[in-house]
Amino acid sequence: MRSLSRPCWLYSPGLVPYDVAWQWQRSLVADRRQHPDHHDVLLLLQHPPVYTLGQGASMEFVKAELQQQGVPLVRIERGGEVTYHCPGQLVGYPILNLQHHTPDLHWYLRQLEEVIIQAIAPLGLEGHRIEGLTGVWVEGRKVAAIGIKVSRWITMHGFALNICPDLHGFQHIVPCGITDRPVGSLAEWLPDIQYSLVEQQVKQAFSQIFHVELWPTDTLPLLPVPLPPA
């Protein structure tokens, strides 16, 4: 096993509007295109309620009543179908140069799944994969969604782990376009679960899986990168 020698900035700012975090990601990716040797970054945060659609996502998985909810619906450049973010869900955005890891998209997706599986194992929860699908399930309920964008081997977007969110927002969509497998949260098995504890376990698992040393920071060097049209 390699030593945990590659540095990775860790930024955990709490609750962040989706468009702000999206801008951060685009800025960090643009910087690493210009400077491929700059350190990796892991953003760990929460979002106010928001729905996001992957680049090629179909509106057939968005139910009509969503228009009356007043919750933003944003089309972004990741893969995958529609999903929902809200407080109580831990969202992770790794900005990694896979040239410094393993330049393989399938490997990267499986590693993100493994981070979640290892993070929840100490809680007594057994996360598993489902062949042909991306994400992590516990007892048949999907607790973590994954959607990524990789350009020139630099990653953005990432994973969303349902720790203790209000799941009602998922009722207005067909999450990830999967009709026969319900969404779940860790709080369904562990009602007294502590968000901060799970966040810490995700940090530890990420560090081990990707062989990085996380360096907490209160600031990020950001470039002015305009958002694309929604």
Rank of each mutant, 00 (worst) to 15 (best):
S5C: 05
P7N: 10
C8F: 09
W9Y: 12
Y11T: 09
G14E: 09
Y18F: 10
A21Y: 04
A30Y: 04
D31V: 00
D31L: 03
R32Y: 01
H35M: 03
P36V: 10
P36L: 08
L42A: 04
L43A: 09
L45M: 07
Q46D: 00
Q46K: 06
P48R: 05
P48A: 09
T52Y: 02
G54C: 02
G56R: 08
A57G: 15
M59H: 13
E60R: 14
F61V: 00
A64H: 03
Q67S: 13
Q68K: 13
P72T: 12
V74M: 00
G79N: 02
G80N: 04
V82T: 02
H85Y: 02
P87N: 06
G88N: 01
V91I: 12
G92I: 02
P94W: 06
L96S: 03
T102K: 14
H106C: 14
Y108D: 03
R110P: 03
E113T: 08
A121I: 04
E126A: 15
G127D: 08
L133M: 14
T134H: 13
G135M: 10
V136S: 01
K142T: 06
I148Q: 00
I148C: 05
I148L: 10
K149V: 00
M156C: 01
H157V: 07
H157N: 02
I163S: 09
C164P: 01
H172E: 00
L186D: 03
W189H: 12
L197I: 12
Q200E: 15
Q201G: 02
A205K: 08
A205N: 04
F210V: 14
H211A: 15
H211G: 13
V212E: 10
L214R: 13
D218N: 14
L222C: 07
V225G: 01
V225C: 01
P228H: 11
A230C: 10
